[in-house]
Design a protein around this nucleic acid. Sequence first.
DNA 1: TAGATTGTTAATCGATTAACAATC
DNA 2: TAGATTGTTAATCGATTAACAATC
Lengths: 214, 214
Amino acid sequence: MEEREISQAVIRRLPRYYRYLGELLEDNVERISSNELSRRMQVTASQIRQDLNNFGGFGQQGYGYNVKYLYTEIGKILGLDIDHNMIIIGAGNLGQALANYTSFEKRGFIFKGIFDVNPRLSGVSIRGVPIRMMDELKEFINEHNIDIAVLTIPKTKAVDVANLLVDNGVRAIWNFAHTDLDLPENVIVENVHLSESLMRLSYNLSRYNKEHIE
Amino acid sequence: MEEREISQAVIRRLPRYYRYLGELLEDNVERISSNELSRRMQVTASQIRQDLNNFGGFGQQGYGYNVKYLYTEIGKILGLDIDHNMIIIGAGNLGQALANYTSFEKRGFIFKGIFDVNPRLSGVSIRGVPIRMMDELKEFINEHNIDIAVLTIPKTKAVDVANLLVDNGVRAIWNFAHTDLDLPENVIVENVHLSESLMRLSYNLSRYNKEHIE
DNA sequence: TAGATTGTTAATCGATTAACAATC
DNA sequence: TAGATTGTTAATCGATTAACAATC
């Protein structure tokens, strides 16, 4: 049942490989060696080969990797060959911004609905999808077979809403709220903590200043 | 000059410590042991102590850590005690969403300006700050002493704009464009690649499905 | 076939955890 | 003082890099 576990360090790099391969594909590059890719991506060729071989032998000795094939295979590994129905909870600026990202759809993430508590937003539409009130949530999840929910609500409400979502069958949460969610281990949580990202930037900036002024 | 280098693994965890300590502070918790914090944060106590001791001995044997003191010190380490002037390039949905994040200001990130190429946005204001056209950028950076720029523009323009920003003295870029920036090493780049985050979620969701259906 | 480049094993490096002496 | 808990060294674990035999 359980395959040898792939480390999250590898998973973190996969989408980047996918992006570079997509660009090569657009440029009509047919094949690429781990060495050439390593040069472009600024990682070691050894790491590329090790990473890919976690999932199978996609290359060919003496030739390298076929770009289109590898791109497709990584897409499958990432689950981009399967559609996922997605809803957004919180129709504030960020929620609306994400709702307008049409590029997600190309990767199989289908924007099905968006919810908020603010009655003034009731009926307002984004990309043809009306903002719904939270009391419709339960029914909507079941009817539309939603497996991903995006959480763009204040942290004070995030934990409760997350539990509600999970109780109704949501399988994965893309969490933009500034809090950690403690959910059953079969629920996937991917956090995007923007303020923490900005603090890392700030740290690196400050450190640089300190090193060069003293 | 150069202190012993702190690993990025440690830096990645610092903002999370800061968040938990901030919450403890709000709850009027005066002191905390690495053990208790470890229980709350789901990391080992050993890691907490190791991480903190990269920057100094903030605790006291037999007592633990004073929450307020540790919070303040981590804030300083992260550079949150110093104000940074920030501009946003790209007044699309995401740019506007970030411009509305008043919480950044509390951490010393001062929203000074927002720029776009779309003349229809010219003069529209966000939190009292007018959207400016790109031809004003150069002068604005110099006059307002900008050191952080947020890039929320399409990837096709990101590289050129980033170079322009750096040429005019911007020291750090918070990059939301779906591309890597190749900038001088004295420029700090913090990437937020949302689509890659979503793909990681997708991978973990798909893997779970495969493991449990087969 | 010769040359190129993968797949994979072994070596190294770095990060995490465990243990405990120091000390409040 | 006794108990608690840090700061720090040592041990372990895991991830990255190097090397090279396999093979296209």
